[in-house]
Structures are given as structure tokens and as C-alpha cells.
Design a protein around this nucleic acid. Sequence first.
DNA 1: TAAGTGAACATGTACGTACAACATCCGATT
DNA 2: AATCGGATGTTGTACGTACATGTTCACTTA
Lengths: 255, 255
Amino acid sequence: MLAGMSTIAIPMHQQVSDHIRQEIVSGRWSEGSMIPGEIQLSEQYGVSRSTIRQALASLRREGLIRGVQGRRPIVCKAVPSQPFSVFMSFSEWASAIGRVPGQRTVEIARRSADAATADLLHVAEGDPVVQLLRVRSLDGVVTMLERSRYLREVGDLLFEMDLDAGSIYAYLRQRGVDLASGRHVIDAVAADAVDAEHLGVVIGSPLLRARRTAVDAQGKVLEVADDRYLPEQANFIIENHYSANTGMARVALVG
Amino acid sequence: MLAGMSTIAIPMHQQVSDHIRQEIVSGRWSEGSMIPGEIQLSEQYGVSRSTIRQALASLRREGLIRGVQGRRPIVCKAVPSQPFSVFMSFSEWASAIGRVPGQRTVEIARRSADAATADLLHVAEGDPVVQLLRVRSLDGVVTMLERSRYLREVGDLLFEMDLDAGSIYAYLRQRGVDLASGRHVIDAVAADAVDAEHLGVVIGSPLLRARRTAVDAQGKVLEVADDRYLPEQANFIIENHYSANTGMARVALVG
DNA sequence: TAAGTGAACATGTACGTACAACATCCGATT
DNA sequence: AATCGGATGTTGTACGTACATGTTCACTTA
């Protein structure tokens, strides 16, 4: 039976999927091999087949297994998937890929929101917001220029922090600000004068832009950012599978 | 009741989710509003609550609705997730977002693989591959320049097809070629002479590049492509959540 | 007026049954 | 020997029940 059962109410199907996920990521169930059938799993875990199906549905969504009707599911080959915090935070990302993150804060300021910022942050035009401009590097190599704007109540915390020391994301979480989801809109832009100066390229050079929005559990927008990467230094990978839907889209712009 | 029911076996839950999806994308159920409860839907469609839940689960996965226990689900604002085929195929994508896809084939040729192509397609250098250069448009507006290279056995099928007519992806699937997963590596590049000519921009303009790899169920690489988008016409959106791992990553390049 | 309580409603979890559709393999027939 | 069936195993679909857990709102009470 399940090892980690405790008194707090963790749904059965989640306990099962967690357990199976362990089998997979630990490598005990190797890539490409078939996993036990639904009936066998239901006997093994002592739950109904419906519950097993619910658990397997999660794993399918995550892309860990896939299969077709009539055949037992097989373990997918590893996807280059990064957990939320790694994808949201430059510092945590750098650490996760074994590089040393660096940052130089060009400016931090509290000022009134212009129309565009107000719209993105869902505040009124003229409301105070905290604006941040940072150059970020990997192993000392300049990689990205970050323009962030924070909701005032969140941004004010940043004045108490040593911005060049560590991860803003980790700091905010420690202070009770919990980001729950994020959205990256990715396109390409030509470097403007500010980009050119800080990234060390000529004006007009192609940059990879990720416009980022960070949202808390209640759906309140806490941060919007415009990150511009040197395309030689970093890029984004999206991997998707026939059976597993992932949170990505290609969109067309009107006009 | 359901309008489009027919004799062929489309699962009930899919018919329901298709129907509800229509209500949403058509705007009849407006963004942010609550949708009917599960019980009410089950009476409306004449199916069990289990079936309704299965339908709603799909919509939740696609990001069209969201909700919490005890409260009726609400219609999400716009976009997020697209199914595999929509993300892999330009034509299916265009249709899904309500635009008319267009294409002009500049060249289709069978030639020997150069070193870079051979490496990506996992064939020997000099092996024959099928190479394709197409300009793709939305509603008649030039959007993307596609450079594809196909494994010979797959690419040969394309000579029998009217390339300017429809979706290669759909055609290949019909011919028994089933793509199972894909990978997009996204960055920015400056337009070269070929890009400039076909996309109507000046050399050096920033373009959004997606280097695409399509793989079948056995893990064999069938197609590699270099798609260059006008950043004003299309971009990529990645949405991720604290709890759900999705198949995306930001990577750093060495050297 | 403000806070608290509970009924009504809604979704989440878990069980169960029955049958349909598909894959695989083995044996019989050609 | 090759092909065609059918048995068997497996997942997909659809139904149903029961109870747990969470939200909302109207009404009661302090």
C-alpha cells in the first residue's frame, strides 16, 4: 500500500499519481516501458479503477505517460520541463542550469503609472508603482535587460532588500507574497538606445523579448516585466505531445 | 439538446465540450461570467453528471474555464493553451483562431542533406532529404517564412500533394504518418536576404524564429524546420502555474 | 447595525457497473 | 506458409450512487 499516508486529507488519486510519478522520475520505471494496467494498479493501491484513471489523467497531462486505447500506457521520454519557480525567476533558473546569476541594478524608483503600465497592472493611471531596471548576467556574461513594474504594496518591499544580492522572487515569497502563475508573451524586437547601451549591442539588433506577468492565487497582477535577452545567450524551448496539453499558444496579433 | 449529433461515434463528452466551447469562443458566454452548474448542464444535455465533468475537464485543460470547489466555473479571459495539432500546424492554427491561412510555395526540392540538416534529422550527410520553402500568411497578410526539411520517405509524399491547398500536417496524418510530439526552440534573428525578400522587410530586421522538430511515436525525427515570423504578426505565449508542470524551458547557450 | 449561523447550492472525491473499441497474439483455415 | 478469425487483455465511454468540502446568501441574534 501507500507509504506516505497521513491524517491530513490528501485525495487518494493524488497520492496515487504522486507515487507513480516517483516511480517514473526516479527511473525505476524506465523510459519507453509499459506501466501496469489500470486494473492491476487498482488492486495494487486498493482503490477503484475510476480513481486510478483520475491519477493517470494527471500524469498524462504532465506528459509523463502516454498511450492509446487497448494498449497499456508507456513512460514518455523526459521533457525539458522546468518547475514554476525556475521558469519565473532568473536567479533560480541560473542556479538550476548550473550557472552563476549576476545582476546590476540600474534604477529602482517609485513613480506614477503611465497608461500602458496602469492597464497591465490593473491599477488606475497615476497610481504609484515601483519600477526597476536591471542588467542580468550568467557567469558574468551580460544576458538580459529586465524592466519590471511592481504593484506598490509589493514593490515597496524591494526598497528594504539588497537587490544585487539575490532572487527577488525568493525574497517576496519569504515576505509572504506568493506568486501562483505567470504568463510570458514572447516575440522579437529591435534594440533601442537603452537596450543597446546596457546589453552592448548596436541599436536595431534583434533581441528576444519576453513580456512577463506574475499573478497571485487570487488572480491579482503583482508584476509586469519586459525582459530582453541576447538571442545568443538564451532562448525558450517548448515541447509538446499529442496527448498532453500544455499551457502554451501561438497567437496572431490584430492590425 | 445538441444540434450536430450524427450517426458516427463521437463521444458524448466531446460533443458536450465542443458545444460549450462554441458558446465561449463565440462570445455568447462572456468572459468572466459563470457558466451553468454541472447538474443543470447534465439535465440540459441529457447526460450524466460524470459525463459533464469529463467535458468540463477538457475545457479546464484548455484554459477556457476555471473555478474552485463550491463555485460555478467562470469563463477565462482569452487564449492560453492550444492542442498539439493546432500548435504544430500553421493551417490548423490559423483556422483555430478564426483566420484564413494562406501559403505560397517558393521551392520544393529533393537534395542531399548538408551537415547541419543531417545532424538534425539523424541521417547521414549526403542522404537525400526533401526541402521546402514556403511563405505563409493570415488573411492574406504575410506572416511567416518556413524552411522545412523532411525525411525522404515522408517528404516524397509531398510531391503528390497540392502544397498550396491545405495543411501538410493533416495530409501526412491522412497518409498514415502520425506525428507524436514536437519541439520548438524559440529565439530572435536578424532577417537575411531571403527573409527580407519574402517577408517584405529590410535586411537586419528582428524576426521571431522557431526552430521546430517533429517526431513520431517511435521517436524518429521526421521534420526539422526554421520558421521566421514577423513579430508584429504573431508571437508565442507561455502560461505556467505553480502547481502544474508544463513542457517548457528557458535554456542558456554555451560559448 | 454587525456578526454569526445554517440552509441551499455547487464542486470534489470515491466507489461501482456495464459495455464499446482497440491491440495483440495464437490457433485454425486456406 | 500466409492469412484470417476470434479470444483475451486493456483502455475508453457512460451511467449511477453517496458523501465530503467549499461558497453564497438570507435570516437570526446580539
